[in-house]
């Protein structure tokens, strides 16, 4: 029952073909993938967005998701943050010999479910098996391609003084969920990773207003780091309000225990939108109706002062700088 991946699964032999046929092609099947040519050939018209990301999260399975779901959502979200409609995905697996086939099945199934939800097709892929010790069980790379609809111009460089900053929900869930499973640090918190594809949320936001200037998903480095990136890219200041940033109690408790600041903890299913003040309420209301935006809030605004910096009004009414994350000691979270 405990069948594992062998080096021979990556040798190009019959075993390799079997693995691809049964474990990958069957669950992820579509016309383009089924051709099994050296490359997928397709037509796409319009302005394209193209992105890639590698996933090395440890552990592979965590509350609320696994590396497979992450590998789809992460890349889908990178496309969505450019306003693109995700179309196609590549899937590349680097497997350490000894990985249980049952675990691989579980991960591929997560990939299938996440891809279906995001309505993106996996149309090309690769599988390599490496010696024990050369990888940590499984690494995944995905690249994604999407179409940017006409009239959409979203960039981290487009934030303007007066714009509002919207956050799509509670911060820190993913980082704490993964950390709670880390070897030597297992603790029980009622926190699930927020890992989710955000492309449909973005599509609905764009439906009510095209005046979205910047979109970012605050993954590694958390909300603080992402806001700093936007402040620098757009050469503006950002002011946020501590009491408006939603954090769930499980995350707050874990942060208190571990000495972390939730502002720096990773998310995998949240976005920050910098939008024209005029349309902020309209966009916020739409976000609140969406499954992945229920707890959305306007957390601050873009200012002409303190360019390149993020300043937070604390609960007590004082101000403090919110700097970028500087190499905290966190496990691999994505």
């Amino acid at each position: 029952m405990n069948e594992t991946i062998l080096l021979a699964h990556g040798s190009g032999s019959k075993l390799s073909h079997d693995l691809i046929e049964k474990k990958l092609l069957r669950p992820l099947n579509n016309q383009l993938l089924a051709k099994l040519d050296d490359s997928a050939v397709f037509d796409l018209k319009g302005k394209l967005a193209f992105t890639t990301d590698s996933y090395v999260v440890s552990p592979l399975f965590f509350p609320g998701g696994d590396i497979g779901k992450l590998a789809v959502c992460g890349t889908v979200n990178d496309l969505a943050m450019s306003g693109a409609v995700p179309m196609y995905l590549s899937l590349s697996l680097i497997i350490e010999e000894g990985l249980l086939l049952s675990e691989l099945d579980k991960i591929i199934n997560s990939i299938k479910i996440a891809a279906e939800e995001a309505e993106i097709k996996i149309i090309t892929g690769d599988t390599k098996v490496v010696n024990r010790g050369s990888a940590d069980r499984l690494f995944i790379n995905t690249a994604g391609i999407g179409i940017v609809p006409k009239g959409i111009d979203i960039s981290g460089a487009n934030a303007r003084a007066g714009d509002k900053v919207i956050l799509s929900g509670n911060i820190g869930d993913h980082g704490i969920a993964v950390m709670s499973q880390r070897e030597g640090l297992k603790f029980s918190v009622p926190v699930q990773s927020d890992c989710a594809p955000l492309n449909k949320l973005v599509a609905q936001m764009l439906e009510v207003s095209p005046k979205i200037h910047s979109l970012r998903d605050p993954t590694r480095g958390g909300l603080a780091t992402t806001l700093n990136e936007i402040a620098k890219q757009s050469d503006v200041g950002i002011r946020i309000y501590e009491d408006r940033i939603p954090v769930n109690d499980g995350v707050r408790g874990a942060c208190e225990l571990l000495g972390f600041d939730a502002l720096y903890v990773a998310n995998e299913g949240k976005l920050i939108a910098i939008v024209d003040a005029e349309d902020a309420d309209k966009i916020l209301n739409k976000m609140k109706q969406h499954l992945y935006g229920g707890n959305s809030a306007i957390i601050g605004e873009i200012t002409p002062e303190h360019k390149g910096k993020v300043v937070m009004k604390t609960r007590l009414g004082a101000s403090r700088i919110v700097d970028m994350l500087s190499g905290e000691l966190l496990p691999r979270i994505c």
């Binding site: 600041d261 604390t314 609960r315 007590l316 009414g317 004082a318 101000s319 403090r320």
Partner: peptide
């Protein structure tokens, strides 16, 4: 003190 901006208060 720093995180809450207490010196300013």
């Amino acid at each position: 003190i720093m995180k809450n901006g207490l010196r300013q208060l």
